[in-house]
Write a protein that binds this DNA or RNA. Structure first.
Lengths: 345, 345
DNA sequence: TAATTTAGCTAAAACGTTTTATTATGTGCA
DNA sequence: TGCACATAATAAAACGTTTTAGCTAAATTA
């Protein structure tokens, strides 16, 4: 049996004032609403004494603001996303918001279910790392005038707030770096999906291929891998069939992990000769052997910019013209895996 | 300007029935409340047609159930915790609950702030990985009859639901394994804190020290490290001062990471000679060189058991007698880092 | 026929706030 | 005296549900 919590009504009764008065005082409108200092203090003192906390559900119902944001990522247990989550958490709390995290597993079905679910719950805003086919669902959020900002990837031509990195440039920078260190036959390992971030990364690679006139060698793994094992098989086959490769750019975290597993198990000599670069850093990449050079996304900054855009939408009474985008620059964390061969131990 | 969402009242008006009737039908109480099939279907059809979704805030306010759980961990960006979060997420959604995650950074102050924050928000239950000094705050939750289950660590002698692993045994098993592979002078690297999980891990080590009569060699890093750099300095000093060590058991994930960084940078030959075991697995430990042997916590199971206990508390009208605990067994993922020296490449 | 039961539905209170509109009282001024 | 006006407070509606208690008409029973 839950004890009933004390409400404004109880306070009002106890102090012989009206509920309205208490509410005004608690919301800092005492002066504005001409509540005498005497009464104001009486209320404030008592509230402090009994440590009263307002019922946020009731507040939300009345005001229409839940003070809850949703961050939808692919998989919260992946470091890139959990690190993002960690940063968003702090930024949101600073502004009095909480964050509900959810993982869409890059599935449209799950994404849509989740969005509906949270929409029912009147969350105040969405930060979404979208799966490939939910453009319409997101549009429907916009039509309901619910603040949404996309992160990491977006939909070409869509009018929406968005924060991401310059993927083409990042990829390009990676290949440049390989080239400078004597690796001039790099492969590109990615996922077979038409999402903007992946297309950008591919584009950077292709651009570099033209400039340095090396033969493009792409491996695109299926969008929804059945298992890690399947991924490893595909990678193994690829490495076997392409012995001429001298370096690899992995387009995501997760692929790097699979690739390194395969290299370590099946090509133990090769792992020390290949140039290896990965998108998305991870603390443990620095303790691999070789330590892996990484293209680092500015996670803190991405989160900050996203929040800025989101709060502008939240605080805007009506949808104003123009959507803000921020394209941030990555940085290259150079480690052993891209050292020129002659320099290696 | 937000469009007003359609409410039960609108539906009632449109169909010429009462709000009550609509509510009964929507809650599946049509038969029980003797609403005719005709009316029932009329309502269901219309609701489906306009895709009506109830306002959960109003529901929560009325029923007193928010259908939100809180999972408080040390740091959501640490893999052990983000993986836990991922599992909890799915388990909760299955039962119609959402999960708010938060990171207490192992700080009592932050923990207490967070608990208060969520308490105001009438969440339905807490899953807490507690920092060392919040025993009283947790008791106060219990006194308010709010369901709480502790995870990973608990408070000695406290009457509370708890799920964890057999830390003493896990540690012991690690040392046994080292011993069997010819490492008989193992060190124990941990954090200087009186939390149950850490004490258990230490105990297992000490027990083994007695049995195999090796000299205990513990390094306890400060509870709140100022920086990674500070941690690395301490570890470096420790390795320098104790050249006789042939193996190490790292009591957490995070320490392993620091330790491996130091070993890789400053003791490159040693990293291949030492026996190394870590608590808490991580996919990337298998691609380190050497791949690191890990004591794996059964994360899925831990989450499942925690949810079971929590839901029992939630569904219990009043606090019943007895608190449930579950102590689960870990498993050892054997990799290169504990291979006997003669077997190594 | 009158009393009772049942089927089918609904009015209104309640959850705990915020906010609009209103009241009561006193004060200054012509 | 009467009017305007400021001051200090409040009553009541509203947010969107759930749920208690009750109402009406028809059917059944005595």
């Amino acid at each position: 049996m839950k004890k009933k919590r004390v409400s404004i009504k109880d306070i009002a009764k106890h102090l012989n004032v009206s509920v309205t008065t208490v509410s005004f005082v608690l919301n800092g409108k005492a002066k504005e609403k001409r509540i005498s200092e005497e009464v104001t203090n009486k209320i404030l003192d008592y509230v402090k004494k009994i440590n009263y906390k307002p019922n946020q559900l009731a507040q939300s119902l009345r005001t229409g603001q839940s003070k809850i944001l949703v961050l939808m990522v692919e998989d919260i247990s992946n470091y890139f996303f959990s690190k993002l989550a960690r940063v968003f958490e702090d930024l949101a709390y600073e502004k009095g918001y909480k964050v509900l995290f959810c993982s869409n597993e890059n599935s449209d079905k799950k994404s849509i279910e989740l969005i509906d679910l949270f929409n029912e719950r009147q969350v105040d805003g969405f930060i979404i790392i979208p799966s490939a086919g939910i453009e319409n669902k997101i549009k429907s959020l916009q039509q309901q005038n619910i603040p949404v900002v996309l992160l990491d990837r977006f939909f070409e031509g869509m009018e929406i707030g968005y924060v991401g990195i310059d993927n083409r440039y990042a990829s390009r920078q990676g290949i440049d770096h390989l080239n400078m260190n004597g690796f001039n036959s790099p492969a590109f390992v990615s996922i077979d999906v038409q999402q903007t971030q992946m297309l950008g990364r591919l584009e950077g690679y292709q651009e570099a291929a033209k400039e340095y006139s090396f033969k493009e060698k792409k491996l695109l793994l299926p969008y929804n891998l059945k298992s890690n094992e399947q991924g490893r098989e595909i990678l193994k086959k690829f490495f076997n069939e392409n012995p001429e490769l001298d370096s690899i750019l992995f387009a995501t975290n997760y692929l790097t992990q699979l690739g390194l597993e395969v290299l370590k198990n099946d090509f133990p000599e090769k792992i020390h000769q290949l140039g290896i670069i990965t998108f998305d850093d991870n603390a443990l990449f620095s303790i691999c052997t070789p330590a892996i050079t990484a293209i680092c996304q500015p996670i803190e900054n991405m989160a900050k910019e996203t929040m800025n855009i989101l709060f502008q939408l939240i605080n805007k009474p009506t949808q104003s013209t123009g959507f803000q985008n921020k394209i941030l620059k990555t940085s290259l964390e150079v480690r052993e895996s891209t050292k020129a061969l002659i320099e290696r131990v």
